[in-house]
Design a protein around this nucleic acid. Structure first.
Lengths: 118, 118
DNA sequence: CCGTATCCCCAGCGATACTG
DNA sequence: CAGTATCGCTGGGGATACGG
């Protein structure tokens, strides 16, 4: 394999986007920040638009990039917990900022449709 | 059309990622921050791995989302300048920190290949 | 409960040529 | 100079079924 990402990163910004880009990674990191520790099934419920395949895939890549930690408990029934690593936690302020920015834009959009009026 | 993005955003974080995600948008915003104003041809040179199609497409979407401003000068030869809007500038701290984070990870990776040694 | 294994689709991206 | 127009590809993502 040797190529996890489509292309080599052009710069550090590119590098960062390759790691936290994708459809679900931002939200996964965010919820792990909010709840601190989450089990596989909990993540699946929270991100209720995700398939098991995509969830596993996203989690594996985040783990490989050292952004999250995976703790397996050898029990019956099995139990697996995910949490942010130190490196992953360093991204929290930025996710927060980005989230606030997004919320602000959404609020603005909601006020716009008034454009078409007499 | 009516659907510029594949899916409706699930939350504000999702919303934000839909706007600045994609392969080039982050870098475009970043360079507009650094250089303040850039012409089409200048952007094309700086992002030297981009095709005119992708550059135009990215710029149009960023403009539609009010993150950048497009100023056309009716001259011969034609001249078009791009710059960040107020809303776009609000993303700069985020991009800055994300870039620093990326740079830090890259530095770490460079020290790792020592793993395979006697 | 926590995942794999398959198969498939499509939107994002790329290459190239052309134009006001 | 600053873009369009066309066509083609490919890998990220989706649906569904199954396994330890």
């Amino acid at each position: 394999m040797a190529r996890k990402y489509g292309t080599d990163p052009i710069c550090s910004l590119d590098y960062a986007f390759q790691r936290i880009g994708g459809k679900y990674k931002g939200r996964i990191l965010w919820h792990l920040h909010i709840r601190d520790v989450l089990r596989y099934g909990e993540l699946r419920k929270i991100l209720d638009d995700i398939t098991p395949k995509m969830l596993t895939q996203s989690l594996r890549e985040l783990e490989e990039d050292m952004l999250i930690h995976r703790e397996v408990y050898l029990e019956v029934p099995p139990k697996v917990e995910y949490s942010l690593t130190k490196v992953g936690k360093e991204l929290v302020p930025f996710l927060h900022h980005l989230k606030d920015w997004g919320a602000k834009q959404i609020r603005k959009e909601k006020l716009k449709p008034m454009k078409v009026q007499s």
